[in-house]
Amino acid sequence: MSGIALSRLAQERKAWRKDHPFGFVAVPTKNPDGTMNLMNWECAIPGKKGTPWEGGLFKLRMLFKDDYPSSPPKCKFEPPLFHPNVYPSGTVCLSILEEDKDWRPAITIKQILLGIQELLNEPNIQDPAQAEAYTIYCQNRVEYEKRVRAQAKKFAPS
Rank of each mutant, 00 (worst) to 15 (best):
V25I: 15
Q139S: 07
H83A: 03
L60N: 03
C138T: 15
G115V: 00
A15D: 14
E78G: 13
G90N: 02
S71C: 10
A44F: 02
E42I: 02
N85M: 10
F82S: 02
L94G: 00
P84F: 01
F82I: 04
C75E: 03
G115P: 04
S158R: 11
R141W: 10
Q111C: 15
T108V: 15
Q130C: 08
P88C: 00
P32Y: 13
A15R: 11
R61S: 12
E54R: 06
R61H: 10
S7F: 02
P46L: 08
E42A: 14
L94I: 05
R13I: 03
E143P: 06
M39Q: 02
F58C: 05
Q117D: 08
V92F: 04
G55Q: 10
A133S: 11
R147P: 03
P69N: 00
E99D: 14
P28D: 06
K30W: 03
E122T: 14
M62N: 02
K49P: 05
T108G: 10
L81D: 01
C75S: 13
S70T: 12
F58E: 05
Q139C: 10
Q117G: 12
G47K: 02
T51M: 02
K110E: 06
Q126L: 10
M62V: 12
L119F: 15
K74M: 15
E98Q: 02
G56I: 02
A10P: 04
D33Q: 03
R147W: 08
K14F: 06
E98T: 08
C138S: 13
V86I: 08
A152C: 03
C93N: 03
H83D: 04
P84S: 07
P128C: 08
R104I: 01
F82Q: 02
G115W: 00
A129R: 02
L38C: 07
P73T: 10
K18F: 06
R104P: 00
P84Y: 02
L94E: 06
A44I: 11
W16K: 03
Q139Y: 14
P72W: 03
P157E: 06
S2C: 15
E78D: 12
E118D: 13
K74Y: 15
C75D: 03
E132C: 09
T91P: 14
P46E: 07
L38P: 04
V148A: 10
K30L: 06
S70Y: 12
D66P: 12
R17P: 04
A133F: 06
F64S: 04
A44L: 11
F58R: 04
A26S: 10
N121T: 12
Q151K: 05
Y137N: 02
N31S: 08
F58N: 01
L97T: 15
V86W: 03
G23R: 04
A44K: 15
L9F: 00
V148R: 02
C43F: 06
I45V: 14
D66L: 12
F77H: 01
C43S: 10
Y68R: 03
P28N: 06
E99V: 11
L6S: 07
A133R: 04
T91Y: 10
T35I: 01
K154P: 01
P28R: 08
K48Q: 09
E98V: 15
V92W: 04
W53I: 02
W53N: 08
L119E: 05
E78R: 14
S2K: 05
P72V: 05
Y137G: 02
P105M: 09
Q151T: 04
D67V: 11
E145N: 15
K30Q: 07
Q11C: 14
L120V: 06
N140E: 12
A5T: 08
A152W: 04
A15M: 06
S89K: 11
Y134I: 07
L60C: 14
G90M: 10
P69I: 01
L114E: 11
F64A: 03
K153M: 13
D19W: 06
R147N: 08
Q151A: 03
F64Y: 10
A5C: 15
P32N: 13
L60I: 12
A15L: 12
P80N: 13
H20M: 00
P32S: 12
I45L: 06
K110V: 09
F22H: 08
R61F: 11
F77C: 03
R13N: 01
E143N: 12
N124I: 04
L38S: 01
I112W: 03
D66K: 09
A44S: 08
L60A: 12
N40R: 09
I45M: 13
L60D: 02
P105I: 07
I4A: 12
K74I: 15
E42H: 07
V27S: 08
E42M: 07
C43K: 01
R104K: 11
S95L: 04
I107G: 12
I112G: 06
R141Q: 14
A152G: 07
K59I: 09
Q130F: 07
I109Q: 05
Q117R: 11
S71K: 11
K48P: 15
Y144V: 01
P21E: 01
E54C: 03
V92N: 00
T35A: 09
R147A: 10
T29F: 15
P123R: 02
C93H: 04
G90S: 03
W16Y: 06
N140T: 08
A131D: 08
V92G: 01
T108I: 15
S70N: 14
I107C: 14
L9I: 06
G47H: 07
L119M: 10
T91D: 06
I96A: 02
D67T: 10
I107L: 13
A106I: 06
W41H: 10
M36R: 10
N85D: 01
P105C: 12
S95Y: 06
W103Q: 00
K14G: 03
D102W: 10
P69L: 02
E122S: 12
D66N: 10
E54N: 04
E143Y: 10
G34S: 06
Y87L: 02
K49E: 12
C43R: 03
E78M: 14
A129P: 03
S71N: 10
L57E: 12
T135D: 07
H20K: 04
W16L: 05
T29L: 15
R13Q: 07
P28H: 07
F24D: 12
A152I: 04
Q111K: 15
I125W: 12
F64R: 01
Y144E: 01
L114K: 12
I112N: 13
L57T: 07
H20G: 01
A133N: 01
Q111I: 14
Q11A: 15
F77E: 03
V148N: 00
S71P: 06
H20F: 04
R17F: 01
R61P: 09
G3L: 10
E54L: 04
V86Y: 05
G55V: 07
Q139A: 10
A131R: 08
Y144Q: 02
Q130W: 13
F58H: 02
L6Y: 15
N124Y: 09
V27L: 13
L120T: 07
N40G: 04
L81W: 01
M39P: 06
A5R: 04
Q139V: 03
P88R: 15
G56R: 01
L94W: 05
Y87V: 07
L97R: 02
E122G: 08
L119R: 05
G34M: 10
R149Y: 07
K146F: 08
S7Y: 07
A44P: 00
Q130D: 02
C75P: 15
D67N: 14
F155M: 05
E143C: 11
S95E: 05
